[in-house]
Computed example of a mutant assay.
Amino acid sequence: MAVTAQSRARSDVQPRLRVLQSFRTPRTTTNPYLVQLRDALGASADVRTFSWRAALLEPFDVLHVHWPEVVVERRSRVRHLAACVLFALAVRRASSRGRVLVRTVHNLAPHEEPDRASAAVLRSCDARTAWWIRLTDRTPVPDEARVTTVPHGDYVAWFADRPRAEVVPGTIAYVGLIRPYKGVEDLLDVVATMPDPGLRLVVAGSPADDETRRVLEQRAAADPRVVLDLRYLDDTALVERLTSAELVVLPYRRMHNSGALLLALSLGRPVLAPRTDVNTDLAHEVGERWVQQYDGDVSADAIRRALEAVRADPHPAPPDLSARTWPVVADGHLAAYRDALELARGRVAR
């Protein structure tokens, strides 16, 4: 469902919505997507971050859920089960008495297999979702009549005041959290087969666990061209690592939407990523030079071809992210919230 001038005008004359987001008060490690969403919505709605008290006792119009499995994630099994019970109650409350649950579908499935309690939470959340938000039309939802597509917002303003590094020719980089499905070990193996002495690989980010760290360190030890920076990166370090790369490589074993890809583009760095319908659409949107793609697994040939394509156009126009500014993103969310409420309160016949 497109965001129209009519829907924007409608939000100007109706009462401010009370929106409860499913993430807690942001910390320095919080995904900037969520922080920017909260701030952009705050211009037109009363937005609160999550607490059990707010979800179970305090007034709101919309509960906006992003990753249900994250809401109930706890280190202790007992606390995890308690969180599942409480969230089930919150979901039930959010779908009663004129309130609505709106859910953003960020991925096709959770990145890690949920346990039985988390799976039950996901089913309950799906069953009681009044309206869906998706980041691309390529994402399937249970009911196409109850969905709004709102593109993933950019990170341009978020990192605007961070100093950029000079591009180091021959440097390719993976930057971000290192989780099994992202295939960083595969990238190390591929680089090991590339004899080019001018090639340099930077892997920067926090590994998911000690075993992942051990594997990365073991595979990198024999190649002096590989630089490992295995830690949580603050914004300054993140920008430095990304902007020094000639090419950002995302060797994911599976990919649908990717905040990491949008982050690199927001910093003006070209990306090599798996060929998917979503990434092909993005390449058409922002410019083909900025989103290089590979078929199957990441390979030496794919990296070489991507570097050649990037070097063939050394002074390109910036990637076109005009459809992903946060005022546009906020408008799309507000339209979805109001459509969900109108449907729930019987003001729209469908």
Results as ranks from 00 to 15, higher is better:
Val329Met: 13
Ala54Cys: 15
Tyr181Pro: 00
Arg219Tyr: 11
Leu250Phe: 11
Leu265Phe: 06
Val184Trp: 00
Pro114Tyr: 02
Pro169Gly: 07
Val47Leu: 09
Glu211Thr: 12
Pro251Cys: 15
Ala54Gly: 13
Val168Ala: 13
Ala309His: 12
Arg48Met: 09
Leu101Lys: 01
Gly268Arg: 05
Ala245Thr: 04
Arg103Gly: 08
Val202Ala: 11
Ser11Gln: 09
Val105Gly: 13
Asp234Arg: 04
Glu217Arg: 10
Ala127Phe: 10
Ala165His: 03
Asp281Pro: 10
Val291Asp: 00
Val147Pro: 13
Val329Gly: 05
Arg53Ser: 15
Thr236Arg: 11
His80Val: 08
His284Tyr: 06
Gly287Ser: 05
Arg225Thr: 10
Pro59His: 09
Leu108Thr: 14
Gly198Ser: 05
Ala157Ile: 10
Ala40Cys: 12
Ser118Glu: 02
Tyr294Ile: 12
Glu69Gln: 08
Ala145Asp: 10
Ala90Tyr: 13
Gly259Lys: 03
His152Met: 11
Gln21Asn: 13
Pro114Ile: 05
Leu108His: 03
Val100Lys: 00
Ala344Pro: 05
Leu265Ile: 12
Val62Asn: 08
Pro195Tyr: 04
Asp143Gln: 08
Gly332His: 08
Ala54Asn: 12
Arg347Lys: 07
Gln293Glu: 06
Val121Pro: 14
Ala335Asn: 15
Arg289Val: 09
Ala109Trp: 05
Leu57Lys: 11
Val286Trp: 03
Leu282Pro: 06
Pro68Leu: 14
Gly170Asn: 07
Val168Asp: 06
Trp132Arg: 04
Asp143Tyr: 02
Ala221Gly: 11
Ala208Gln: 13
Leu57Tyr: 10
Ala323Leu: 05
Asp189Glu: 06
Leu108Val: 05
Thr212Met: 06
Leu135Gly: 01
Arg213Met: 08
Val190Pro: 05
Gln293Ala: 15
Val291Glu: 01
Ala349His: 14
Ala82Arg: 14
Ala55Thr: 11
Gly296Gln: 12
Thr149His: 01
Gln14Phe: 06
Leu233His: 02
Glu144Tyr: 08
Asn31Val: 07
Pro26Ile: 07
Ala9Asn: 04
Pro180Ile: 08
Leu341Pro: 06
Leu263Cys: 12
Arg146Pro: 11
Leu101Met: 15
Tyr155Asn: 03
Val329Tyr: 05
Asp12Leu: 06
Arg241Phe: 07
Asp320Thr: 09
Ala94Phe: 03
Gln21Ile: 09
Pro140Met: 07
Pro163Ser: 13
Ala260Ser: 13
Thr25Gln: 15
Leu135Asp: 01
Arg253Lys: 07
Asp235Gln: 02
Asp115Asn: 10
Ile178His: 01
Met1His: 09
Val91Ile: 09
Gly332Pro: 06
Gly170Ile: 01
Leu37His: 03
Asn31Met: 07
Thr25Met: 12
Pro151Asp: 02
Arg231Cys: 12
Val215Ala: 14
Trp52Asp: 03
Val190Cys: 02
Ala306Glu: 04
Leu122Thr: 00
Glu342Cys: 07
Arg164Gly: 06
Leu267Gln: 07
Leu334Arg: 04
Glu217His: 05
Ala208Gly: 10
Thr148Gly: 08
Val190Ser: 00
Ala40Ser: 07
